Computed example of a mutant assay.
Amino acid sequence: MARKKTASNQDELLNEFQALVRDTESLLQQSANLAGDQGEALRDQIRNSLDRARSTLHSAEEAVMERGKAAVDATEGYVQTHPWQSISIAAGVGMLLGMLITKR
């Protein structure tokens, strides 16, 4: 249950971060109308902020991918070392799901 909540929170965080990047890009395009040194300074700040945001997002995506890969590797290792237990667990889960589906 805690893992699902963590994964959901990570997904929400990534979605919000992507929205932030899109909004910043939109702001950058809209700031093109500003003239002079102030406008250019603002655009530079927005570009730097956007670059940092993209870098952070990329790092977060890599971390999530690595954790997912580690979970898959751990599951494969368990199934290979305990094949009969894995089959029993899968059969039990299948039976439970079958019972729940037939009751509806």
Rank of each mutant, 00 (worst) to 15 (best):
E61V: 07
R47G: 12
R104G: 01
D37Q: 12
S49K: 00
A91S: 07
Y78E: 05
A91G: 04
H82A: 08
Q30C: 08
A63G: 00
T6D: 11
D73F: 09
R47F: 09
I46V: 15
E12D: 07
R67E: 15
A53L: 14
K103L: 05
A71Q: 13
S55P: 02
L27E: 07
T81N: 11
D37Y: 08
S55D: 12
L14H: 05
S31C: 13
E61T: 08
I89D: 15
M65C: 09
R47Y: 11
L96S: 08
K103F: 03
R104F: 02
N48I: 09
L96K: 06
W84V: 10
H58R: 09
M99H: 11
D37C: 04
H82N: 15
T56C: 06
M1R: 05
K5I: 01
F17H: 10
A60G: 02
D51P: 06
A63I: 00
L42Q: 00
Q30Y: 11
L34I: 07
R104P: 00
K103Y: 04
L97D: 09
Q45T: 10
M99G: 12
D37F: 10
V93A: 12
D37E: 14
T6P: 01
L20Q: 04
Q38T: 07
E76N: 12
F17M: 09
S26H: 14
L34E: 12
T24L: 11
A7Y: 09
R47S: 15
K5Q: 00
I87E: 12
A60R: 02
P83T: 03
D23F: 00
E66D: 15
L50N: 02
S8C: 04
H82L: 03
Q80E: 13
Q10R: 08
S86Y: 02
E76D: 09
E12L: 08
A32L: 07
T6A: 14
L42F: 01
G39W: 01
S88L: 14
E61G: 08
T24A: 13
G94E: 00
G98T: 02
S8G: 08
D23R: 01
N48R: 14
